[in-house]
C-alpha cells in the first residue's frame, strides 16, 4: 500500500502563492468576501504562512506554503464524534462532507490550523459556479473542509493503472499545487517506495517537519533554506 507524502523545498520556493490559487480553483474552494476574510473566515487549503523576521530596515519575509500535513497519527480524526474525518489506508486524511455535523472539534484539535469551516452558504466567482471542477464535490454551509492531497486525482490515476494492469508510476499522481509551482519546489509521491523522489528528499539533511515533537507524524516534509536566515 503506498503512503502519499509531500516535500516542499523552501530553498526553491519563491513564495509566489501560485499553489494556493491553483488549489482554490482545483478544489472548488468557495470565495469569501474580503471583509469576512479579514475576520478570519478566509478559505484556503494551501495556506501561505507569512512571517516577518528582524527589525526594520533589516527585515526578511518568510513565506511557507502550508497544506494539511496528513499526519499518520492525526489528532483530528481521533476526536471526530461521527467519523466524518478519518485516515485512509494510504495515509490520506479525508473528510466526509455529508456526514460532518459541524462541531468543529477537529479544527480545535488540529495543532496546525489546517482546516476551514463553511461559515456561510459557499459562494463562487460570478459565472464560475457552474464550470468548477466536476471531480470535486461542492461543500455546503456548516461543514469542515481541508486539503485532500487532491485525492480525486488519485482516483483517476488508479483507474488508469488498473486498466493498464500496472503499478502507479512515481510522479503520475500529483496534486494541483505541484503542477502550478513555477519553481518546482513541491515534490509529491509514495514515501514507502525508496526510489521515489519524495522518499529520497525526505532523507535529506535539510529536512524538517512541523510538529514532529508532537508525535503526530506529519507527511509534509520541508527542506530548509540553504542561505542563512
Amino acid at each position: 500500500m503506498p503512503k502519499w507524502a509531500m516535500v516542499i523545498d523552501l530553498d526553491k520556493c519563491t513564495g509566489c502563492g501560485a499553489c494556493s490559487v491553483a488549489c482554490k480553483m482545483e478544489n472548488n474552494i468557495p470565495i469569501v468576501d474580503p471583509e469576512e476574510a479579514r475576520n478570519g473566515r478566509a478559505m484556503v487549503w494551501m495556506d501561505m504562512m507569512t512571517t516577518v523576521e528582524g527589525d526594520y530596515p533589516n527585515t526578511h519575509v518568510k513565506r511557507v506554503p502550508k497544506p494539511c500535513f496528513h499526519c499518520d497519527d492525526p489528532p483530528c480524526t481521533l476526536v471526530c464524534p461521527v467519523g466524518a474525518t478519518y485516515r485512509n489506508p494510504e495515509g490520506l486524511v479525508a473528510q466526509i462532507y455529508h456526514r460532518c455535523i459541524g462541531c468543529r472539534y477537529c479544527m480545535a484539535a488540529c495543532p496546525f490550523t489546517a482546516k476551514s469551516f463553511n461559515w456561510y452558504d459557499p459562494k463562487w466567482i460570478e459565472g464560475a459556479s457552474d464550470v468548477g471542477n466536476p471531480d470535486v464535490s461542492r461543500r455546503m454551509v456548516g461543514v469542515v473542509e481541508k486539503c485532500s492531497f487532491c485525492s480525486h486525482r488519485l482516483q483517476k490515476v488508479k483507474e488508469n493503472a488498473d486498466i493498464e494492469d500496472r503499478q502507479i508510476r512515481d510522479g503520475e499522481y500529483v496534486p494541483a499545487c505541484l503542477e502550478s509551482c513555477p519553481a518546482d519546489a513541491i515534490v509529491f509521491g509514495d514515501i514507502e517506495n525508496r526510489d521515489s523522489d519524495v522518499s529520497r528528499l525526505s532523507r535529506s539533511y535539510r529536512v524538517y517537519r512541523y510538529g514532529e515533537d508532537l508525535g503526530v507524524k506529519p507527511k509534509v516534509y520541508y527542506l530548509a533554506r540553504r542561505t542563512g536566515s
Partner: peptide, 17 residues
C-alpha cells in the same frame, strides 16, 4: 454547523470521541 445532522451521532457515532 449542521444541527439537522445531529442524529449522525447515533448512526455513525464514534465512542472514541
Amino acid at each position: 454547523g449542521r444541527p439537522d445532522r445531529m442524529l449522525n451521532l447515533f448512526t455513525a457515532g464514534r465512542l472514541q470521541s
